[in-house]
């Protein structure tokens, strides 16, 4: 469904991600794992067209979309739920959701939008209760729900979720991941960029580990969880454990410092 070949993107002409190759197949959850600043969000922005590509190609459902505007990509069914929620705080919950279907409004009837709203409220009863309230007054977790729901209103084929569990309580995190898993059941493809590597690899089919803007490792989610390297670096479990993770970080920094000196 989504194929990236040798994709580079960044800010102000300076690439932050370099030569990324990545695939998402229909009905699949793909996890993007990486440390802070690895370039996950940058990749997501390049996919949705918020950032221009500096090289490489993106194909979506067989068509090249590298040159398309964000609006055209939304029209194709590629929806990006950005990091940090980014809801319209001054508008009501329902207005937020309707804006999610902004491009559909052009051809879909009012009826279809209503159906979409009903479906969303069935899935997220909280949002239904507060439909006419100002979105900025929702709690953090509710705002995250709203952001995902707003993405669903556009009838996505592929949903890019950037840190959907950011700032949520453990029980809410679990809920969000259950939601994501249930979305796959409906045939949605999902690209999931997450700090919570353990949870995201648990529900994912495949995963990519990004380091310094490059794919360091990729494979089936099960294999990635099993790999000791990943476990030590991103999951905080396995052979090395917490202390080892700390040591690894110090070791990395020392190596980098020594390299800089010579």
């Amino acid at each position: 469904m989504l194929e990236l070949r040798n994709l580079s993107a960044g800010y102000g002409g300076r690439p932050v991600i370099h030569g990324i190759d990545l695939d998402v197949k229909a009905g699949e959850i793909v996890a993007l794992v990486g440390a802070n600043g690895a370039g996950k969000s940058t990749l997501a922005k390049a996919l949705s067209g918020l950032l221009p590509c500096l090289g490489g190609t993106i194909r979506f459902r067989g068509q090249p979309i590298t040159a398309l505007s964000p609006a055209d990509r939304v029209r194709e069914g590629l929806i990006h739920v950005p990091e940090g929620r980014q809801i319209f705080v001054g508008l009501t919950v329902e207005q937020n959701l309707e804006l999610g279907a902004y491009l559909r409004r052009a051809d879909a009837s009012r009826n279809e939008i209503e159906q979409g709203l009903t479906a969303v409220y069935a899935r997220f009863p909280v949002l239904g209760d507060r439909a006419t309230g100002i979105a900025g007054n929702l709690s953090g977790g509710q705002q995250q729900m709203l952001a995902i729901a707003r993405g669903l209103m556009a009838r996505p084929q592929l949903l890019i979720l950037d840190e959907p569990s950011l700032g949520l309580s453990p029980s809410l995190v679990k809920e969000v991941f259950q939601l994501i898993a249930s979305l796959r059941e409906q045939g949605l493809a999902i690209l999931l960029a997450e700090q919570n590597a353990r949870m995201s690899l648990a529900i994912a089919d495949r995963g990519y580990v990004i380091e310094n803007g490059r794919v360091a490792l990729s494979g089936n989610a099960v294999d990635l969880v099993a790999s000791e390297d990943i476990a030590a670096r991103y999951l905080g479990i396995g052979a090395v454990g917490h202390a080892g993770r700390f040591d690894a970080a110090i070791h990395d920094r020392l190596v980098a410092a020594i390299r800089r000196q010579t």
């Binding site: 949705s48 918020l50 609006a71 950005p82 980014q86 902004y102 052009a106």
Partner: peptide, 23 residues
């Protein structure tokens, strides 16, 4: 109008408006 709502969205949060497919 639909355009009116899009106008509002642009002022509220340009980034999110872009992601909704609003130019």
């Amino acid at each position: 109008t639909r355009m009116g709502r899009a106008f509002r969205a642009c002022a509220e949060n340009p980034l999110a408006a872009n992601l909704m497919g609003i130019g």
